[in-house]
Amino acid sequence: MLPEAHKLTSSADFRRTMSARTRSGSRTLVVHISARTDIALAGGPRFGLVVSKAVGNAVVRHRVSRRLRHVLLGGVDKLARELDIVVRALPPAAEATSAELKKDFEQAAAASLKKLAKQKSS
């Protein structure tokens, strides 16, 4: 389970992060990243998950969510404190292993971070 300090909780935060235009995808996931300006309130990077009914029934969605939370927990120390990250699971995530989800998250997050850095420098 992710600690409260690492969770996106408001729909406004989800909306802001997903509309930031810094997203990258893989076969199983789409990763949206935005940087907060109020890092004084930050306890670390904050994560949100979107696992829609397109992924599968409730049992499958819950399994995918558990696997993704575990993957995200491992990335807490590797990411900057001011980041908000929304991970949207795609239908192939239902059949993916935890290792595949981890690899896809790391690749998509790296690509999104590169886009974010390019936006900041512009």
Rank of each mutant, 00 (worst) to 15 (best):
M1C: 13
M1A: 14
L2M: 12
E4T: 15
A5S: 15
H6Y: 11
T9S: 14
S11D: 12
S11N: 13
A12R: 12
A12H: 09
A12F: 04
D13F: 06
D13N: 12
F14D: 11
F14N: 07
F14V: 05
R15M: 13
R15E: 15
R16C: 07
R16D: 15
S19K: 12
S19W: 06
A20T: 01
T22S: 15
T22C: 15
S24Y: 07
S26Q: 08
S26E: 12
R27A: 14
R27S: 14
R27I: 13
T28L: 04
L29F: 02
V30F: 06
V30C: 09
V30M: 09
H32S: 11
I33C: 13
A35C: 11
R36Q: 05
R36E: 03
T37S: 15
D38V: 02
D38L: 07
A40F: 10
L41M: 14
L41W: 11
P45I: 02
P45Q: 13
R46T: 13
R46D: 01
F47N: 05
G48H: 05
L49M: 12
V50E: 10
V51T: 08
V51C: 02
S52A: 09
A54K: 09
V55M: 02
N57H: 13
V59F: 00
V59M: 05
V59R: 10
V60N: 06
V60Y: 03
R61C: 03
R61N: 07
V64Q: 01
S65Q: 09
R66H: 03
R67Y: 03
R69N: 00
R69K: 00
H70A: 07
V71C: 01
L72G: 05
L72P: 05
L73R: 15
V76T: 04
V76L: 07
V76M: 07
V76Q: 07
L79I: 00
A80P: 10
R81V: 02
R81A: 07
E82C: 02
I85K: 02
I85V: 06
V87K: 01
V87I: 01
A89D: 04
L90G: 01
P91Q: 01
P92C: 00
A93M: 01
A93H: 00
A93D: 03
A94F: 00
A94M: 01
E95A: 12
S98D: 08
A99W: 04
L101N: 02
K102Q: 15
K102T: 14
D104A: 01
F105P: 11
E106S: 15
E106H: 14
Q107M: 13
Q107W: 12
A110Y: 07
A111P: 08
S112R: 06
S112C: 05
L113W: 06
K114M: 09
K115L: 15
L116W: 02
A117E: 11
A117N: 10
K118R: 15
Q119C: 09
Q119T: 11
K120I: 11
S121A: 13
S121D: 08
